[in-house]
Design a protein around this nucleic acid. Structure first.
Length: 444
RNA sequence: GGUCCCUUCGUCUAAUGGUUAGGACACCGCCCUUUCACGGCGGCAAUACGAGUUCGAAUCUCGUAGGGAUCACCA
């Protein structure tokens, strides 16, 4: 069975970039009737915070991404130590005693003399007595994984046949001086233990993956299928992570964006499918195919998100949106929703139209004589679906106006807006009293 | 600086050696509605640059330019 995982570290809120990875993993699993695991990578306890873990779950929940199982790396530390022992036995791990300062100095020197900043394996050549000396002095080792300096080949789910030569990489540190595990090892141990079949993540993990393939093999497991998605950029082509700005899921929610607008965009941008709105995540699951993702960097355009948001409302019946509608402090009726749903791009605009139709606004009068004529010709009796056309043709006869000259001033006066929903229905909802109020020019 | 990856309409992309280089969104126009919006129809618009291979190149090769990623005792 296909089994994937989304493995965020709880060091911040989910943003558009890492949520996209979550979404793609989710869709991939659902499409194959597989298993989607949420794994909290909280091995770095200096940066990890429980509040972020809660926030990540909340946000995924809001987006309709449900996980089939949950794991936390902080509860699995024993297994990582076990893995280290195994690697030590096989001489694929070795203790090192350099301080971080030494290492960073070394890197700087290499860089300034035009060399790649790769660890020189000094510690690999330490004798047993050297090691004993360090330990006697109370210096605790950190451990590195010994890379095999050969080509690592894999067939990437997104990038196709891929190759990386390991001599371009430092032996990765896998256990810190304080005994805590590093991501590179923890991730592989978990992927083996939980029998992850496919890993989909950003292309920033490309070289990690190459090293991890060797780690899988050193731990006598076969590596899962690997797929590296091109990273989203902003509209100018710059990396998204650099402008943390307003792109967290929480901010997007606060701005009124709908989960399906976000998911629709994020699941299609960068693929050979056209970007369009979907009412339900299952519709996206159905024809999801990782092969459709291209190799070049897709751009995230907030305007596109706005457009999808407005398109989403048009898809919804009253019942579909009722849960959100009841959060307003006035009662939105089905008729009201049907009237305005084609004319909003944000749920907040419900409030604007509510005030226009039932509340108090500042009408726009640009032709007071004409407005008086309109008021005088308002039909008597109860309003019905013909009222608007009877009314406007009366005005036409009396004033001689038609088309734009007739409708624009009337719309402006009644709604204060130059654009908006169908007037025939709007007038019906607004009612006689409110119309007379608007046309009475009291605010002049 | 080393290594890896990317470059087709404004944007996302299709076309795995032969197409009028296709679609979607945006934009523009027309229609609908005796108004605008919504909706429907149509139009504009691209192979980064330079060589090479080939009867034929967006597609293969090399170079140039631009962009990105990575090179942590973070994940």
């Amino acid at each position: 069975m296909t089994k994937v995982r989304f493995a965020p570290s709880p060091t911040g809120y989910l943003h558009i970039g890492n949520f996209r990875t979550a979404l793609i993993n989710f869709l991939y699993a659902r499409n194959k009737n597989g298993h989607f695991m949420l794994r909290i990578d909280d091995t770095d306890d200096e940066r990890s915070q429980i509040k972020y873990e809660h926030a990540i779950k909340e946000d995924l929940d809001w987006m309709g991404i449900n996980w089939d199982s949950l794991e936390k790396q902080s509860s699995r530390l024993f297994y990582y130590d076990q893995a280290l022992e195994k690697l030590l036995d096989k001489k694929r791990a070795y203790p090192c005693f350099e301080t971080p300062e030494e290492l960073s100095l070394k890197r700087k020197r290499q860089l300034s003399s035009g060399k790649p900043p790769i660890y020189d394996r000094t510690a690999l050549h330490l004798s047993d007595s050297d090691i004993a000396d360090f330990k006697a002095k109370g210096i605790r080792p950190h451990y590195r994984f010994l890379l095999d300096h050969s080509d690592v080949n894999w067939n990437d789910l997104v990038k196709g046949p891929s190759r990386y030569n390991m001599s371009n990489l430092s032996d990765p540190v896998i256990i810190r001086e304080d005994g805590k595990v590093i991501y590179t090892l923890a991730s592989v141990v978990d992927d083996i233990d939980f029998e992850i079949t496919d890993i989909l993540r950003g292309e920033d993990h490309m070289t990690n993956s190459a090293a991890q393939i060797q780690l899988f093999e050193a731990l006598e497991a076969s590596p899962p299928n690997l797929g590296h998605l091109s990273l989203l950029t902003d509209i100018s082509g710059a990396g998204l992570s650099k402008r943390i700005g307003s792109l967290s899921l929480r901010d997007l929610k606060a701005e009124g964006f709908q989960p399906m607008a976000i998911s629709s965009l994020l699941s299609k941008v960068g693929t050979s499918d056209s970007v369009d709105i979907f009412k339900d995540i299952n519709q996206i699951t159905f024809d999801f195919d990782i092969e459709k993702f291209g190799k070049s960097k897709p751009k995230f355009d907030k305007n596109e998100l706005k457009f999808l948001n407005s398109k989403y409302f048009k898809l919804l019946d009253f019942e579909d949106i009722y849960d959100q509608l009841k959060n307003f402090n006035f009662e939105v009726t089905s008729g009201f929703w049907e009237l305005v749903k084609d004319n909003i791009e944000n749920i907040k605009q419900i409030e604007t139209w509510w005030h226009i139709i039932y509340g108090k606004i500042k009408p726009v009068y640009n032709d007071t004589d004409f407005i008086k004529t309109c008021l005088q010709n308002l039909p008597n009796g109860n309003f019905n679906e013909n009222t608007w056309s009877i009314w406007t043709s009366n005005i036409m006869k009396v004033s001689g106006r038609k088309g734009k000259d007739l409708y624009n001033p009337l719309r402006l006066c009644l709604t204060g807006q130059s654009r908006g929903p169908e007037m025939a229905t709007l007038v019906l909802l607004m009612g006689r009293k409110k119309i007379i109020e608007r046309l009475s020019l009291n605010d002049l």
